[in-house]
């Protein structure tokens, strides 16, 4: 019992001394995870659209070659970034750029580097999720869209992706939560997120365990908040389960004249 009291005292001591640092770390972590997940989703969507472009036998050879090339490139991208640890990717990209350009180019800010690395890593995972999400929508809707003259991109953006996105919301949430935690490896390129402050602070006062307790609690709060938020967004996306009749059905019920419904039907 008195151990717990001691922990409480230590934690409050730490918090009074370094609370602002911890909060700053939380802010950086959340910002990085949020921005990188969003960009990663966009990358995933683009890859998903590119991978599902239909390829008919009657298409010109050039187009077929091009589509094949795109598919191969996307596959390579997915396999490479899904198959290597993000810490290594960070080192590889952050130090690789100046190495290959003889220091002519380097990352001007560690933020840009961190966002880039986490984004393309997330994108590799999202590409597969999006592809699965697209495949889960019944092909009839794609045909329905094509039959009224929509192009592949129009079909995707208007019909398929909104539904695929809803279906993969749990995976997007998963990726976000993983990013909140895994951005901690970005200390390797001296990005100061939440976990980096643990390292700095314990470097000056070696209160490892109390600081770790703060970190645990901090991460848990972030991910729990994210979970709740995601559930809420999902419910919003599902919309209402009922609708209002504007008037009677003229065919199955008695025939009647019908006036314009109010403007709420539009988007």
């Amino acid at each position: 019992m008195d151990k717990l009291l001691k922990l409480g005292r230590d934690v409050s001591l730490l918090w009074r001394g370094y609370g602002a640092s911890y909060l700053g770390g939380i802010k950086n972590t959340l910002l990085l995870a949020l921005v990188a997940t969003a960009i990663g989703c966009v990358i995933g969507l683009v890859c998903g659209i590119l991978q599902t472009i239909p390829c008919a036998k009657t298409d010109r050879p050039f187009k077929r070659f091009f589509l094949g090339l795109i598919r191969v490139l996307v596959r390579v991208y997915v396999e490479v970034f899904r198959g290597t640890p993000m810490v290594l990717q960070a080192v590889f990209i952050f130090y690789g750029l100046p190495y290959f350009t003889d220091n002519a180019m380097r990352f001007s800010s560690v933020w840009a580097a961190a966002i880039l690395i986490v984004s393309i890593n997330t994108g590799a995972y999202m590409a597969e999720s999006v592809r699965g999400g697209i495949l889960s929508i019944d092909p009839g809707q794609t045909e329905g869209a094509k039959a009224i003259g929509m192009t592949h991109v129009q079909t995707m953006t208007s019909v398929i992706l909104p539904q695929a996105l809803r279906n993969i919301m749990p995976q997007i949430g998963n990726n976000f939560i993983i990013n909140v935690k895994d951005t901690s490896v970005m200390f390797i390129i001296s990005f100061t997120e939440f976990f980096a402050f643990h390292r700095y602070i314990t470097g000056v006062n070696n209160m490892y365990f109390p600081s770790a307790a703060i970190e645990m609690l901090g991460y848990l709060c972030m991910t729990l908040a994210a979970s709740f938020l995601l559930r809420w967004i999902e419910r919003r996306m599902d919309g209402s389960s009922s609708y209002e009749l504007v008037q009677q059905d003229a065919l199955t019920m008695t025939a009647g004249t019908w006036s314009l419904p109010d403007a709420k039907g539009g988007r």
Binding site: V246, D249, L251, P261, K264
Partner: peptide
């Protein structure tokens, strides 16, 4: 309106 579905514009 012509197919008798005007009342259902807001339905899914």
């Amino acid at each position: 309106d012509r197919v008798g579905m005007a009342p259902y514009v807001n339905a899914r």
